[in-house]
């Protein structure tokens, strides 16, 4: 079972989620109502999984994810959002979150998502898959990278695109594996790769930006 930290500004929601997690056998090692507080207590609490509400009163979800990953590079972040799949969800994924769920998801669905996130599996909603597909297309349509030697624009392989499209159309990994005659594990790897490339590209871009601005020291 996983060590979980719950970050949400709504006290009732925080308690409800923590209770569900404890009942399911997880250990809730910390709760926080604000982003800065979460980043501060995380190193001592050492959670495996952080369940993070994207809309916090003090700092953006992206900043919290960066702070958490800087303090605990192995931590996995499962985002929750009440307002649907939008730019902030995509930004959070690029910053390193590996799972996403809308807040209206059923408790069973939520517990399953925590278990999978702890096991290192990406948790995608169809909406998130649509966002990621759109992001790859946006990057491909944009101007080419100024330095061709650098990591360059990330691209999806045909198979990755195919898998992502099926996820976006609401098919389960199992259904996708059957449709494409590949293993469940392979489907998972494809989905994971699509995230990995985006996150790597995001880090490279941030570094390049920092160097250009002379902030690298």
């Amino acid at each position: 079972m996983a060590r979980v930290m719950v970050v949400d500004d709504h006290p009732m929601w925080r308690e409800g989620v923590a209770r569900d997690l404890t009942e399911a056998g997880h250990e809730v090692v910390a709760t926080a109502g604000e982003g800065r507080q979460a980043v501060r207590v995380a190193p001592a609490a050492r959670p495996d999984v952080v369940v993070l509400d994207l809309q916090l009163p003090d700092v953006s979800g992206v900043e919290v994810i960066r702070g958490l990953r800087a303090a605990l590079p192995e931590v996995r972040v499962l985002m929750l959002s009440a307002s649907g799949e939008q730019q902030d969800v995509l930004d959070a994924v690029k910053a390193g979150a590996t799972g996403y769920l809308v807040k209206s998801a059923a408790p069973a669905e939520f517990l399953d998502a925590v278990r999978r996130t702890a096991a290192g599996e990406p948790v995608f909603t169809p909406g998130l898959a649509g966002l990621v597909l759109g992001e790859y297309r946006r990057l491909a349509a944009g101007p080419p990278a100024p330095d061709p030697e650098a990591a360059g624009t990330p691209r999806l392989t045909d198979r990755e695109t195919e898998v992502l499209r099926l996820v976006a159309k609401g098919m389960s990994y199992k259904q996708i594996a059957e449709r494409l005659a590949i293993s469940h594990r392979t489907v998972q790897n494809h989905v994971q790769n699509t995230l990995g490339k985006l996150q790597l590209h995001n880090r490279v871009e941030l570094t390049r930006y920092a160097i250009e601005r002379g902030l690298d020291d």
Binding site: Q86, G130, L131, G134, E135, R137, R138, K169
Partner: peptide, 11 residues
């Protein structure tokens, strides 16, 4: 809606 999921780009 709860029974219709919509997936789209961010922009």
């Amino acid at each position: 809606s709860p029974s219709v999921s919509l997936s789209a780009p961010a922009g």
